[in-house]
Design a protein around this nucleic acid. Structure first.
Lengths: 139, 139
DNA sequence: GTGTTTGCAAACAATTTGCAGAATT
DNA sequence: AATTCTGCAAATTGTTTGCAAACAC
C-alpha cells in the first residue's frame, strides 16, 4: 500500500507552478524553487513533477522543442509555441470536441481526445520583426 | 556557398521512409538502412533526417513520447498515437484551417498553423482489450 | 517504528558534434 | 582540386534511478 506523505518541496513546486501562466520546464522550476529551498535537487523536482502529473494535479505539455513543459491548468486547452523565442502560451479557445467525433468516423480504433499546438510568432517577437522592417524602410 | 551533394545513404533513407506509413524513429531507420548499408552510422542517419526535414522533403513528428518520428508525407495532416503500444498513425482528416483563424482572433501574435495529435487506443490494441474482456465474461 | 521522500551522484537515452578520411562534383 | 558527406567516438542534453540519510505519520 503506498500512501502519499506530505513534502514541502512538492507543495512549493505546486504553488510555484500555480503562479505562472507560461509553461516552465523542470529546470526553470528547479532554479526558482532553489530560492526557497537552496538544497533541493533536480532529481526531486523531476520526481515531483511526474508524481503531480500522474495524480492529475498538473499536466505535462510536449511542444516538440525537446523539453517537457508543465502546466498547473489541468483543464484541456490549446497551446501555442513561438518559432522565434520558443515561448509557450495558452490559446483561449474551447477545445473542439467535434474534432474527436470527426476523427473517430474515419479511424479504426478508439479516439479518446486530442491536443492541438499552434505555432507562429508571439506578440513580442512579432513586434520586434516589425521594428526591424520599419528601420529598413526608413533608410 | 553550400551546395548539396548526392549521397546514396541520404537517398536510401528517403526511399525507406517513403515505403512506410507508420512513422519510424531515427533508430528504426538506422536498423533498416543497415541491411543495405551495414556500415552506416547512427550519426549519419540523424544528420540526413535533419537535413531532409529542413529541406522540407520529409517532416519531423513530435508525439510527446520522448522520441522524434519521421514522416515522408509533407502535406499537413493529423496524427494519432496509441496509449497502449505507442504506435503512431495518420488520421485521414483534412486539417481545419478555420482553427487557425479562430485562434488568431483570440491571440495576440501571428498564428501560422497548427498540429493536432489524437490519442486513444489503436485498432489492434482495442481488439486485444476486447478479447481480454470476453475471456473474463466467459468465466 | 514503518514507509515515503530527499539529496546526491551515477546511469541512461536520444541526439549532436569534431575530425580524419572517403565520396561527389 | 574543392567541397560535401561519412563513420566513428566522444560530448551534450534532458531525464531517471539507486542508495543512505532525513522526514512524515
Amino acid at each position: 500500500m503506498k500512501t502519499l506523505k506530505y513534502s514541502r518541496q512538492r507543495e512549493s513546486i505546486k504553488e510555484f507552478l500555480a503562479t505562472r501562466k507560461d509553461h516552465p520546464t523542470a529546470d526553470t522550476v528547479y532554479v526558482n524553487i532553489r530560492q526557497l529551498y537552496p538544497n533541493i535537487s533536480l532529481g526531486t523536482v523531476y520526481r515531483n513533477l511526474s508524481l503531480l502529473a500522474s495524480l492529475g494535479e498538473i499536466c505535462k505539455v510536449s511542444c516538440g522543442d525537446g523539453v517537457e513543459h508543465f502546466d498547473s491548468n489541468t483543464e484541456p486547452h490549446y497551446h501555442f509555441i513561438c518559432r522565434e523565442c520558443g515561448c509557450v502560451q495558452d490559446v483561449p479557445l474551447d477545445p473542439l470536441n467535434d474534432l474527436d467525433r470527426m476523427a473517430s468516423n474515419r479511424f479504426e480504433g478508439t479516439i479518446e481526445g486530442h491536443t492541438t499546438l499552434f505555432f507562429g510568432t508571439c506578440r513580442n517577437c512579432t513586434e520586434k520583426v516589425q521594428k526591424t522592417l520599419d528601420k529598413r524602410e526608413a533608410i
